[in-house]
Structures are given as C-alpha cells and as structure tokens.
C-alpha cells in the first residue's frame, strides 16, 4: 500500500534524458580477438562441410573455402553405403550400427556397476571405503596401454574376443573408476539423515537404492550418460584392438577408409564420412551442451 501510494506520487515524468550504454574501445578489441578465435575454431568445420557437398571435380580446383558450385549429396550417399574400408565396401553405415550396438551394453554395464558402487561407498559405512576410493582414483588415470595386452589375454580366455561384447566390456571396465568417483561425489551430498531415516523405515540396501536414491539421480545420470556416449562413440583404440572383422566401430571403419584407402582419393567422400561419424556426439553436444560442460568438468575435477 505504502509503495503504491509513494510511487504514484513520484510518477512525475523523468525529464533527464536516459543515458546510452557506452561501448568502450577495449570491449571492441576483446570482441575482435574472440571473433578471431571463433574463426579458427569454426573454419575446419566449415571447410569439411562444404567439401562434403562438392563434386570431386570442384575439390580438385583446390579452393577450400569456396561454396559448392553444384551441391551434391552423392559423397554422403557413397560414404554411408559404398565406400571401402580395407577389403569390405559397405560404407560407414555398418560401423554406425556396430557403434550403436556397442554403445548400449557399455552404458548399461558401466552405469549399473558404477552407480551402485558409488552409492555403497558414499552412503553405507564401510571402513575401507576411503582406501578403495583412493585406488579407484589412481586407476582412473592409468593409461589404457598398460592394461591393454593383459585384457586381450583375459578377453580371449573368456572366448568373446572380437565380439561386440568384448568391446562393450572393455569400455565398461575402463570407465568404471571415473564414473564411480563421479557418482560417489554426487551421492555423498545426500543428507545423512535421509539415509538414516530410510534405514529405519525399511533398511534394505537395494530398496533404498531403487526407491530413493535412483530417482534423485536424474541430473548426474544425464551428465554421466553424455560423458559415456561421447567417450564410447569417439573411441578408436578399444574398437581397433578388441573388435573383430564385422564388429569394428564407426571410428575404426572411418580411419580405415580414409587412411588406408587405395586408388584415387575421394576427399569429398572422406569428409562426408568424417562428418557422419562426428554427427551423433555433436547432436548430443548441441542438444544438451550445459550438461556436457558439467560432464567434462566432473570428469576433470574430482576429490
């Protein structure tokens, strides 16, 4: 009431002209610098996109930045279904479906194990939890090469070497330490009282997990999903080493197509194949970029 009365009485027109926002010279310099970097970052993407729509005749002219004189989808079609990777000429489409088939079991296994482990370590009193977390922390930084050969031996002895399951299991194993740490750091902020109340009410480890903790985990699940999708999709080495003929993921097919191709090089097809491979993670990035940033920073800053 007071306020309305007061403002009403003060609603005399403001005679003073409203000042304009000043743009300083330093602001312009900063924006120019940022724009230059933006160019550096976006030029490769631009070049690849225009190249993939050019005919090979135009590519041969060597004008990388020129727009296609004649837009053609032929390179994309060839890249998807015809291009040769080594001996087989099935395009990258086969690799795309293999990558998809690898992706889902990898996500399921890694997130399943890591979330339960993170939950147990964060919220249930286990005396050696600290030690185990420290070991996981160290494991998260172990270079893959050091455990690669024994894993080959191990996977072979399980009789699944060269299958999609081999690739998915190795992905899950490799991601487990990092994901566990991320989950654990998320769950340790769950108020202790909530868990104590839940233990008093039902007490079951699994029921608390599925009925209380899991429904609270939507945010961290998205972060972890994005982290895992990009990691698994973009991986090359695991797919190369553990995948067999016909079970190699898209990146491996792409590398074989571009790097070890015979005969006349079709740059426009190569670029279309590269784009096809890059599109799924880019879609994820542009769709949920905010979580992507959280995901990579969660991956970077732990402890």
């Amino acid at each position: 009431m007071t306020m309305t009365a007061q403002t009403a009485s003060l609603a005399t027109p403001v005679s003073k002209s409203l000042r304009r926002k000043r743009i300083r010279g330093s602001s312009i310099a900063v924006l120019v610098f940022l724009a230059m970097w933006a160019a550096f970052v976006s030029i490769p993407l631009y070049v690849v996109i225009v190249t993939s729509f050019k005919t090979m005749d135009q590519v041969a002219l060597g004008q990388v930045f020129a727009l296609p004189t004649e837009w053609t989808f032929e390179p994309w079609r060839k890249a998807w279904s015809e291009v040769c990777a080594g001996m087989t000429c099935e395009g990258v489409s086969h690799g795309f479906w293999v990558s998809m088939k690898i992706l889902f079991p990898s996500l399921l296994i890694s997130i399943g194990i890591s979330s339960v482990t993170g939950y147990a370590l964060a919220l249930w009193k286990i005396r050696w939890a600290g030690t185990f977390l420290f070991i996981l922390f160290l494991c998260a930084f172990v270079p893959f090469q050091i455990i690669m050969i024994p894993l080959v031996v191990l996977i072979s002895s399980l009789g699944i070497f060269g299958t999609i399951w081999a690739v998915a299991i190795v992905h899950s194993v490799l991601a487990m330490p990092l994901l566990t740490l991320i989950f654990r750091n998320f769950y340790k902020d769950v108020p202790e009282e909530l868990i104590n109340a839940a233990i008093m009410d039902c007490g079951s480890f699994w029921r608390i997990f599925f009925e209380i903790i899991l429904p609270m985990s939507a945010n961290i699940m998205i972060v972890v999903l994005i982290l895992m999708i990009t990691t698994v999709w973009n991986d090359y080495l695991i797919g190369l080493v553990f995948g067999g003929v016909g079970t190699q993921p898209m990146t491996v097919i792409l590398a074989n197509t571009v790097i070890t191709s015979f005969g006349e090089v079709q740059y426009n097809v190569d670029m279309a194949a590269a784009l096809l491979t890059a599109i799924p993670p880019l879609i994820v990035y542009f769709a949920v970029g905010k979580f992507f940033v959280q995901g990579i920073t969660a991956g970077a800053i732990k402890g």
Binding site: V41, A255, A278, P281
Partner: peptide
C-alpha cells in the same frame, strides 16, 4: 564443440 569430435575425425 571440437571436444565432442573424436580425435580420429
């Protein structure tokens, strides 16, 4: 965005 692109690409 380049971070979402694989090293191979």
């Amino acid at each position: 965005y380049p971070l979402a692109v694989s090293f191979i690409v």
